[in-house]
C-alpha cells in the first residue's frame, strides 16, 4: 500500500518514486451507477470519474490532485470531505515566470513533506538524479496513411475506441496531444543539470516543459501545437473534451483559426462508450480529410 495516485502531468512521478513510494498515474474508468461521487450539474465527468477511482482504489496510500482546472480544484473538496483518503492539493501556477516557478518548486517540496507523512523519505540529490536519468520519453510521431491528431485533456480507460475508429477509417493518430499522450510528457532532462541540481532540473522541466491551454498566456501551447502538427504532417484535428470543460471548449474556434486545419470538436460525458452520433461524426470527419487529401493529390 505505497501507491500514490495522480492524473496531472504536472505531478512528477520521479519525485514520488524518489521518496520511496510508487507513483500511479490513474486512468479512470467511465462511471457506473455506484459512483461514489454524486452527479452534479456542471461537474466535469472526468473529475467525477477520477475522484470515484481514488475513493475505490484500495491499493492507494494517498492521492495528489492539482489546481490545473477549477473542476479538479473544487473536486478535491468533495474528496477531502469524505476523509477516506489522504489527499494533497497541489497548486500549479498558471503564469510562467521565475517567481511562479518558485511557487511551483515550493509545492514540490510541500508534496515531499506530504509523501514523508505517508511513509516516504526525502531523497538525496544522488537518489533523485538516478531516478531522473532512467526517464525515457516515448516516441512522439508515428507514420502512416492519413495522420490525424487528437488533442484535449486526459483520457479515460476505454478511450482507445476513438483511436480504433480513426484507424478503421483510413487514418491513424499521428499526434496524441491529450494530457495523457505526448503533450503531457516533459522533454528529456538535461543530464548535466541533473548532476548539478536534480531538483532544480526536475522543477524546470515540469514547469516549463508541458504546453497547456490553461497557462496564461497560452502562446506556448499554440507554438507547440503548430510545431507538432507540422512535424507529424497532420491532416485533421479531433478536439476531444469533456462536457463542462470551459478551458478546451473556449479554444476550439482559435485552434481552427491558428492551424488552418479541419477540426472536429467532440464532447464526452464520461458515461460509457462513444455515442453512435459521435462515432458517425468522427467517421464523417475522417471521410472529409480523406477526400481532401485525394483532391490535393489530383491537383
Amino acid at each position: 500500500m505505497n501507491r500514490i495516485i495522480y492524473s496531472s502531468p504536472y505531478v512528477p512521478a520521479e519525485w514520488i518514486e524518489a521518496h520511496g513510494l510508487t507513483p500511479e498515474r490513474l486512468m479512470p474508468k467511465t462511471v457506473t451507477a455506484d459512483c461514489a461521487v454524486d452527479r452534479l450539474e456542471g461537474l466535469c465527468p472526468y473529475a467525477r470519474a477520477f475522484l470515484d477511482s481514488i475513493l475505490k482504489n484500495r491499493r492507494a496510500r494517498g492521492a495528489v490532485i492539482t489546481t490545473t482546472c477549477d473542476q479538479m480544484r473544487r473536486g478535491y473538496e468533495l474528496l477531502a470531505d469524505t476523509g477516506k483518503r489522504d489527499c494533497f492539493l497541489m497548486n500549479i501556477p498558471k503564469t510562467r515566470h521565475e517567481a511562479a516557478k518558485g511557487l511551483y518548486k515550493n509545492e514540490i517540496l510541500r508534496l515531499g513533506r506530504f509523501l514523508n507523512g505517508l511513509g516516504g523519505k526525502s531523497p538525496s540529490q544522488e537518489k533523485l538524479s538516478s531516478i531522473m536519468l532512467k526517464y525515457n520519453p516515448s516516441p512522439k510521431h508515428k507514420s502512416g496513411a492519413i495522420p490525424a491528431a487528437i488533442i484535449g485533456g486526459p483520457l479515460m480507460k476505454g478511450d482507445c475506441e476513438l483511436f480504433d475508429i480513426i484507424e478503421q477509417f483510413g487514418g491513424f493518430v499521428g499526434l496524441d496531444g491529450t494530457e495523457t499522450g505526448s503533450r503531457g510528457e516533459i522533454p528529456p532532462f538535461d543530464k548535466t543539470r541533473i548532476h548539478n541540481d536534480a531538483l532544480g532540473e526536475l522543477v524546470n522541466a515540469y514547469f516549463y516543459g508541458i504546453p497547456d491551454p490553461s497557462v496564461r498566456p497560452n502562446t506556448d501551447f499554440y507554438d507547440w501545437l503548430k510545431r507538432e502538427l507540422k512535424a507529424g504532417e497532420i491532416k485533421g484535428i479531433i478536439l476531444r473534451r469533456y462536457l463542462w470543460c470551459d478551458l478546451w471548449h473556449a479554444e476550439f474556434y482559435r485552434i481552427k483559426q491558428e492551424t488552418g486545419l479541419p477540426v472536429l470538436e467532440i464532447d464526452v460525458d464520461g458515461d460509457g462508450p462513444l455515442s453512435e452520433r459521435t462515432k458517425q461524426r468522427i467517421i464523417a470527419f475522417m471521410e472529409v480529410i480523406t477526400c481532401s487529401m485525394s483532391r490535393q493529390k489530383l491537383t
Binding site: T67, P93, R216, P217, N218, H249, A250, E251
Partner: peptide, 13 residues
Amino acid sequence: VGATCDDFSAIAQ
C-alpha cells in the same frame, strides 16, 4: 489568474 474560475480565465484568454 491562478485560483480563478475556468470560464473567466478562458474568456480573458
